[in-house]
Design a protein around this nucleic acid. Structure first.
Lengths: 224, 224
DNA sequence: ATCCATTTTGGAGCAGCGCTCCAAACGGTG
DNA sequence: CACCGTTTGGAGCGCTGCTCCAAAATGGAT
């Protein structure tokens, strides 16, 4: 008796069945639209028109969901990169892929630097390691060199996330903001930062990031 | 429990009077004892035997409190460092000071990498900049080199925090933990990470961190 | 077609969070 | 003494992640 009633009442049967993938997909959309703080279980239930129990049946907890979303984004970013042959170019390409991914998905950068043992970072580290090997870095030094590159990349990813947290949508506004603050610092205590403040507005994060990569690569070359 | 010695001193304010400093001090104690997640307004009110209103009268919000605590810890760590003359040694000393500070106060590393425009990071960046200048790095390259060093240091600080989050008290247990996980990875997909897993337990973060700094310094030398 | 075991769903409710707001207590000044 | 700005403690709001459970859908076996 209630069978017919509920079928007509509650829309139609779920052709759009819930699944882990659909949940992760929705999570990414929410994250991209509103940043880390926008992803709440309740926002998910609203977007997927379901309840909290249904979601927790497919996903263990919020953290796992964030990790899955990050893994998705990073895996996507890394696919374009596998084909590069020259080790130096490949390392640059990997780094840039992560940079671009964490630039357009700052929440991924945050998660990446917060929980680096997750599959997302494993992918990055493995790729870096292979190309370091191909570059001729001796066994003993591979770990150290990979760690240096990895930590630098993770650091920048975290900074991308921090910047986005400060000004979610206007990218250059952040630089102007910080430049304005630093320009008003005590000239005796912070001469360098005031000088840097002048260069901030006209500087490009992406190319500066690459300069850092090249700096480390140059350092690695000296230990070959 | 707290003992009240307010009456003993004549004519003075309550000995246990609330103040921004006392609050920050208590916050640091809570953070050191229980990590980032332990610092809640309610935990503060309990420790200081007061109410939330009293605390918010001295401190704007949680974030400002974390920033103040971090600034405190970093400022302390940097005092030992100002005297080093040789630029290379000074940069190493700064980096190590930050590493050690974020190693014994992982929450500070987390805050540092999450909000790098706060005074704590300003101090670090300014010091790095000065010594880069002393090293003879040309004007144009100072910003890039400082950024590379800063991002690397921030990245490692974030990793220290992440490791502490995973295993709050047992430092080496984290490495064994991760090594065990990585050792079970698919050998075809992650050959390098398995190889790294073997080196993990016997490796020292601190010296590896320094190797990274030296790598960047070596790279900087090539652009002099 | 009917029954049942299993999976999947939706939501009420809990404990905890940061924070606001306000009445009361305090302390210096006339 | 009265006055008034400062400081205090706590009730309460809206939000969070998450648990738990009853109900609904599903997929055989009969």
């Amino acid at each position: 008796m209630e069978l017919m009633a509920t079928r007509t009442k509650r829309g139609e049967r779920r052709a759009d069945a819930l699944s882990r993938e659909r949940i992760v997909e929705a999570a990414i959309e929410i994250l991209d639209a509103g940043g880390e703080s926008a992803l709440t279980i309740r926002a998910l239930t609203a977007r997927l028109a379901t309840g909290t129990g249904a979601i927790y049946h497919h996903v263990a907890n919020m953290n796992e969901l964030l990790a899955a979303a990050t893994d998705d984004v990073i895996a996507n970013a890394m696919t374009d990169v596998v084909s590069v042959a020259d080790p130096r170019k490949a390392i640059r390409a990997i780094a840039l892929a992560v940079f671009d991914a964490t630039d357009s998905h700052p929440w991924a950068g945050s998660q990446l630097s917060r929980e680096p043992w997750q599959p997302a970072f494993l992918q990055i580290a493995e790729s870096l390691g292979r190309h370091l090997q191909a570059l001729g870095v001796p066994q003993r030094a591979q770990f150290d060199c990979g760690s240096a590159l990895g930590n630098y990349i993770l650091g920048v990813a975290g900074q991308n996330a921090a910047r986005a947290r400060l000004h979610p949508h206007d990218r250059s506004a952040v630089l102007e903001d910080i430049a304005a603050r630093w320009a008003q610092l005590d000239p005796d205590k912070y001469p360098i930062m005031r000088q840097v403040a002048a260069q901030l507005p006209e500087h490009d994060d992406r190319t500066q990031f690459l300069v850092g990569i090249d700096l480390i690569l140059a350092g690695i070359t000296t230990v070959l």
